[in-house]
Design a protein around this nucleic acid. Structure first.
Lengths: 253, 253
DNA sequence: GTCAATTATTGACCAAAGGTCAGAATCCGT
DNA sequence: ACGGATTCTGACCTTTGGTCAATAATTGAC
């Protein structure tokens, strides 16, 4: 049965290659440039073979979105390893979330696309379930920290709001803000100078509003961020520094 | 010159009709169903004439988005008429925002679409400027309330955060949350039972976090919402009630 | 090693849809 | 009524998502 194994492996590898080819197409040139002919060409297989893997173009988008979510969850998991009180660990998730958005803006484009009804509706419910599963995994990770906070007595949820709904709020804020930062070039003209700083401030004040202890005034969360970065995201911090340097150079030039 | 006037008027009316035809197409059947041939057919003019008005399909989406933003701004303006302290007036904007999202979910689809780079990039910078202008008008209205709050001493903005960035936070939260509520049917399964209530709670707690007086504990904002609805959105309240009744009926049936 | 059955691959083909433009139709001032 | 300007038309072109009958490759029984 070693041959069946090889076949299967080759099939999986080709599926990955299709996604590797498709992602930069979507990211660099937009949804319209995602072209089945071009994918087949770059893959060096015929179009029919590509359609053997994905029944339609939209299914590729969905597959990319699932990968994206998995990548984000794994980033969140690294943040969640931070040892500390519940709100510190939530701050660690926030660090992971911001890093993910800033280092991999390409993932965001895909997440926005997959929400478009005319794209979503063309995909198979099998893969839709996979995305839902990935989404659940990510949300469960975050809401477990909320539950821990409630359990430790650091947080009291107001009546009529459950832990998942609180996470929904954090998710909405980051999704909305990072989407706009990635796509709305009018923001600086509107007076939004540093969007990422603003998001961090909003999240912190929102959790303060819910009285999640220790409050911002009771603990230096900037220090927590520093420690999270050093302990769990050293590589990403270096990448960010490199990006900042590159940006400086182009500004100077 | 009365004839030139008539011509011009007919041209404008036809442009409106194109948008009236296009909106339900996008809303009911999605972006893919927005079809220039069908528009021409329903308009009872040839395709070339439609292209006289809009150089490409995407330009129609952008025009719809501008209309949407104008409709939202006018709703916000009605809310802003509420007489009270700054945070009460911000609450009135919140009421307008939620009503707009719930009563006109079709507008949301368009706002999401126009952010897609592959759509945005195909539009004329002339119309892009129009959208930016409409966006500025809306944001300015809201940020003027923040400024009023600061001026009255009810709100002290933390260092490094300006009024526009605070509004950006409210905007991100509502945009992100209402987008997801409109497109992610997995939310109830994730535990998000009542998304709209959650958003209201988040906004309130966020503003509490910023210590915008009077705090939630110092004033009954549910009562403010009631008064805003009665004073400025009586029609919309009736519509909501009707929608709720219709939903009940289908549930019962 | 051979061969038939099964499976995988191909690329010509189709239909749908965005976009163009030369000519037809209409309008308008004289 | 006329001629020039403007507007409108729809046949036509191109691109591209998607199909499927024909072909090639693989496999396993003998």
């Amino acid at each position: 049965m070693v041959n069946i194994g090889r076949k299967e492996r080759e099939y999986q590898e080709r599926e990955q290659r299709i996604l590797e080819i498709a992602r930069p197409m979507v990211v660099r040139e937009g949804y319209h440039a995602l072209n089945m002919n071009r994918i087949a060409e770059e893959l060096e297989y015929s179009k029919g073979t590509v359609y053997n893997h994905f029944p339609c173009k939209e299914e590729i988008i969905l597959a990319l979105a699932i990968q994206t979510l998995e990548a984000r969850t794994s980033m969140f998991q690294r943040g969640a390893k931070f040892v500390g009180r519940s709100r510190e660990r939530m701050q660690a998730i926030g660090v992971a979330c911001e890093l993910f958005a800033r280092l991999h803006p390409e993932h965001f484009v895909v997440e926005q696309l997959v929400r478009i009804p005319s794209i979503w509706d063309k995909t198979s419910s099998r893969r839709q379930q996979l995305l839902y599963r990935a989404e659940t995994d990510c949300l469960t990770l975050v809401s477990s920290i909320v539950h821990a906070g409630v359990g430790a007595g650091d947080l009291v949820l107001p009546e009529g709001l459950n832990a998942e709904e609180l996470v929904f709020g954090l998710w909405s804020m980051t999704f909305g803000a990072y989407s706009m930062l990635a796509t709305n070039s009018n923001l600086p003209a509107l007076g939004v100078v540093n969007g990422y700083d603003a998001v961090r401030s909003h999240l912190r004040h929102m959790l303060d509003g819910y009285h999640w202890r220790p409050l911002d005034a009771e603990l230096d969360y900037d220090l927590v961020v520093q420690r999270v970065l050093e302990l769990h995201f050293a590589d990403e911090m270096a990448q960010m520094a490199q990006m900042a340097m590159a940006a400086n150079h182009t500004t100077v030039d």
